[in-house]
Nucleic acid binder design. Structure first.
Ligand SMILES: [Mn+2]
Ligand SMILES: [Mn+2]
Ligand SMILES: [Mn+2]
Ligand SMILES: [Mn+2]
Lengths: 216, 216
DNA sequence: AATATTTGTTAGATTAGTCTAACTTATTGT
DNA sequence: ACAATAAGTTAGACTAATCTAACAAATATT
């Protein structure tokens, strides 16, 4: 068996190893806000269970089985977030802390029901892909709004950061997933982006914001 | 703060002290399937936290605050069971183990949403009352079917035991809460009860079953 | 009343998950 | 190349939650 605590470590390992080979003790420690010796002994424990590859003084990585387990926890997390928003009337900036707990519920049928009631969704409320039951995470080809060029028409597809503050900021600006708009200007000096949604007055987004907005 | 483990002890204490003053270490130990010394030290811990009254060699009891806390956990458990049945398509014999986990989720708004979506129900899917937000448990005046007399017309209101086996048995017999029927005979020898639902052929229920069926 | 049995308590061990302090290895800057 | 700094590891302590073994108190049986 695998405890909620161990599940959280696997998830962190998975998240931090996107676009990278391994994860250092330091990174993990900072990300989880847990001291390095604690992280270290947990990595050894997960290595004993065959979920993590551990070699002294080298970055950690997930084993194939560890990767599968992590993806399944992320699946439960994202299904939960979607369920909370679509079926229970939560806002997208409220769901993360609740999903952080519910992802550890041990009941396959519970998440199957969610999946069914939601109509087998492919993304969570923040546009992140939901891993399959086999633990496969489809790669979605989004790019940062800050990497786009003037004149392009794009659709807001996901956010790369789900902090409540950022999500609330977007909600207040009426920026929701699926929204299409045209890039009318990108300021050379500070990288801020002006966008135009149909014939509404143009909106200016700072680089800090446009870096976290993913579009197609 | 109070851990899920501590919450389960409070709940057990609450359940076992219905129609009684105190709960012995032995009872608790058997009910939770945890050895007596463990129970004993947990009782001391909860006494330190002001939730349990502990005196050596005396049965334990919940403090006023302990009783309130226990009722609120039971509230979450029962709201969850109702939500699983009414909103997620579960059967009444499937929900207990899931609710046993979800009752520990720390999010007031999560249970408020459930309550709202359910239309503020007063009972769970087994007819047990849902404690109020203040931790008050309304007393419901049901009586055992086995204590009724021949000729009475009664309504099936609750079960006093929610084991999956018993619930499945009732489901197979098409006995659902709210069903009204007449008691046509009670066998002196073994206490079995014959009931008649409108003009359907009569059904015989053993004493073991009629003891667990609560009616008004 | 004396003894046997059951119930409750204490003591000590174990595992999970965390920490701080001290030490070792790797990396960086001069 | 070598010293300084950063990163990783080991050792030892602590709390929560569990156990077994041993002992003490209460209750039941004869
Ligand atoms: Mn999330
Ligand atoms: Mn979590
Ligand atoms: Mn239940
Ligand atoms: Mn529980």
């Amino acid at each position: 068996m695998i405890s909620p605590t161990e599940e959280n470590y696997l998830k962190a390992l998975f998240a931090l190893s996107q676009n990278k080979d391994g994860v250092t003790a330091n990174e993990l420690s900072k990300h989880l806000d847990i001291k390095m010796p604690t992280v270290n002994s947990m990595m050894k424990r997960l290595a004993d269970k065959g979920l993590v590859n551990y070699e002294s003084y080298k970055p950690f990585s997930l084993s194939v089985e560890g990767k599968r387990r992590a993806a399944l926890i992320i699946r439960k997390h994202r299904l939960t977030e979607m369920f909370l928003v679509q079926k229970m009337g939560f806002e997208w900036d409220e769901v993360h802390p609740i999903a952080e707990q519910i992802e550890h519920i041990q009941s396959d049928i519970f998440f199957e029901k969610m999946d069914f009631l939601l109509g087998y969704p492919h993304t969570d409320p923040h546009g992140s892909p939901i891993p399959s039951l086999e633990g496969e995470l489809p790669i979605i080809i989004n790019k940062k709004l800050s990497d786009c060029i003037v004149g392009q028409e794009v659709t807001f597809n996901a956010v790369s950061n789900s902090s409540p503050e950022f999500l609330k900021f977007l909600k207040d600006k009426k920026m929701a997933l699926g929204l299409s708009f045209t890039i009318v200007n990108i300021e050379d000096y500070d990288g801020s982006v002006d966008i135009k949604i149909q014939d509404l007055p143009k909106v200016t987004l700072s680089k800090i914001v446009s870096d976290k907005i993913l579009v197609v």
